[in-house]
Design a protein around this nucleic acid. Sequence first.
DNA 1: CCTTGACCCGGAGCACGCTCCAGGTGCGAT
DNA 2: ATCGCACCTGGAGCGTGCTCCGGGTCAAGG
Lengths: 127, 127
Amino acid sequence: MDSYSPAEVTARTGFSIDTIRYYERIGLLHEVGRTAGGRRRFTDEDLQFLQLLRCLRDTDMPIADMLRFVGLLRAGEHTSAERLAVLLEHEKRVTEQIERLHGHQEHIRMKIAHYRGAVEQQDLATV
Amino acid sequence: MDSYSPAEVTARTGFSIDTIRYYERIGLLHEVGRTAGGRRRFTDEDLQFLQLLRCLRDTDMPIADMLRFVGLLRAGEHTSAERLAVLLEHEKRVTEQIERLHGHQEHIRMKIAHYRGAVEQQDLATV
DNA sequence: CCTTGACCCGGAGCACGCTCCAGGTGCGAT
DNA sequence: ATCGCACCTGGAGCGTGCTCCGGGTCAAGG
């Protein structure tokens, strides 16, 4: 199997068909192949590409940055250093985000401990 | 010092004055005390409360959930079990988010390795 | 052949979370 | 007294990222 209907793609990528159409509109996803009747048929490559987008989105890369990245992809081989830079920068942001979350997790856990232990708080200040 | 101007509060909490006013409007932040002339004066308690909001926002708790939480706070002592539940649930979500990010970080690192190593990729599929 | 459900399109609408605006006022410093 | 900046208000506007709508079309199963 090397060709997928919209329904199959939504099932495999988690993107809704509306989102996929939106991505096509804004140029994030290149124009997908069609049947004679005009229905989209996605290739394995399309699917892999959507999975890349899924990964970037799930790590909160803004769409503008993804556009930049796919622009580099389309620009060809010579942009691979720049693409690497984009990924490195993004990886750094993800790492920072993880660290930030760890800090806040600690904070939340302290509040939880507070609720578990002392049930004597009376006001907003001790939340 | 136990009273802060809006400017001091924005400096200490990272919330803009517009955001603080917005939080007041939607009932997330109770009405703050005022000077004779009508300017806001924030207490240490206000500041601590805003720091709690900061923590919850930074861990992406939706405003609707924060409203629920502060509603419980105002409802009084007997809601502490429920508040604990909200925090536990939120802590769980934060943990999951961290795990998700770790997975994607791995994915991104593989792509980075790919760019570092083989510079022979020719198409979208190998990104 | 006919039904029925998946799919097509352009464009409008929406949810969230702020952010900005215009026009006016308080207040600390000179 | 006055300057000038920080602050006040209600309400409009905005950026992001989808999501929905209405009206029409394709195509597989019976």
